[in-house]
Simulated assay, not measured.
Amino acid sequence: MRLDKCIADHSAYSRKEVKELLRRGSVRVNGAPEQDPGRQVDPEGDEIMLAGVILPTALHRTYMLNKPKGCISSTRTGKTKTVVEFLPPELRKGIFPAGRLDVDTEGMLLLTNDGDLAHRILSPRRHIPKYYLVQLAKPVVEKTVETFENGVVLEDGTRCLPARVAALPGVENTALVELHEGKFHQVKRMFAAVENHVEQLLRVQMGGLPIDVKLGKGDYLLLLHKDIERLFKTPDFSEVLRFCACFFCSYWINE
Rank of each mutant, 00 (worst) to 15 (best):
residue 13 Y to H: 15
residue 153 V to R: 11
residue 172 E to K: 15
residue 208 G to I: 04
residue 46 D to S: 06
residue 4 D to M: 05
residue 220 Y to F: 12
residue 102 D to C: 05
residue 90 E to Y: 11
residue 14 S to A: 11
residue 238 S to P: 04
residue 244 C to M: 01
residue 254 N to T: 15
residue 134 V to I: 07
residue 215 L to D: 01
residue 55 L to W: 05
residue 119 H to K: 10
residue 97 P to F: 02
residue 98 A to G: 06
residue 60 H to D: 01
residue 79 K to Q: 12
residue 64 M to L: 08
residue 193 A to C: 14
residue 214 K to S: 14
residue 248 F to W: 12
residue 175 A to Q: 06
residue 167 A to S: 14
residue 182 G to V: 04
residue 40 Q to L: 12
residue 64 M to N: 07
residue 252 W to R: 08
residue 41 V to T: 07
residue 152 V to H: 05
residue 13 Y to W: 15
residue 236 D to R: 11
residue 116 D to Q: 14
residue 24 R to H: 12
residue 2 R to F: 11
residue 249 C to Y: 13
residue 235 P to C: 04
residue 217 K to V: 00
residue 250 S to E: 15
residue 149 E to D: 13
residue 237 F to T: 02
residue 152 V to W: 04
residue 221 L to I: 06
residue 25 G to F: 03
residue 30 N to T: 01
residue 226 K to N: 09
residue 12 A to Q: 13
residue 86 F to M: 07
residue 205 Q to L: 02
residue 3 L to E: 06
residue 103 V to T: 14
residue 132 Y to K: 14
residue 222 L to K: 15
residue 150 N to P: 01
residue 110 L to N: 07
residue 207 G to S: 00
residue 240 V to P: 13
residue 150 N to C: 03
residue 68 P to H: 13
residue 93 K to A: 11
residue 103 V to W: 05
residue 97 P to Q: 12
residue 234 T to Q: 12
residue 234 T to V: 07
residue 97 P to A: 01
residue 75 T to I: 14
residue 247 F to G: 04
residue 164 R to F: 03
residue 19 K to G: 08
residue 156 D to H: 11
residue 100 R to E: 01
residue 84 V to I: 14
residue 131 Y to T: 04
residue 115 G to I: 08
residue 37 P to L: 02
residue 98 A to E: 00
residue 68 P to Q: 15
residue 206 M to F: 01
residue 97 P to V: 02
residue 28 R to D: 04
residue 57 T to A: 10
residue 194 V to S: 09
residue 196 N to I: 13
residue 27 V to L: 10
residue 51 A to V: 05
residue 140 V to R: 03
residue 30 N to D: 09
residue 130 K to A: 04
residue 110 L to W: 07
residue 92 R to W: 10
residue 145 V to A: 12
residue 134 V to S: 05
residue 99 G to N: 14
residue 5 K to V: 00
residue 156 D to P: 10
residue 34 E to Q: 14
residue 204 V to A: 00
residue 140 V to L: 13
residue 190 M to L: 08
residue 172 E to F: 03
residue 194 V to D: 08
residue 206 M to Y: 04
residue 136 L to S: 06
residue 53 V to W: 13
residue 189 R to W: 03
residue 167 A to F: 06
residue 50 L to D: 10
residue 148 F to Q: 06
residue 105 T to N: 13
residue 112 T to I: 14
residue 207 G to C: 00
residue 103 V to K: 08
residue 51 A to I: 01
residue 106 E to H: 07
residue 25 G to V: 04
residue 57 T to L: 09
residue 60 H to M: 13
residue 80 T to L: 12
residue 206 M to L: 06
residue 237 F to P: 04
residue 102 D to F: 12
residue 40 Q to C: 00
residue 211 I to A: 00
residue 209 L to S: 04
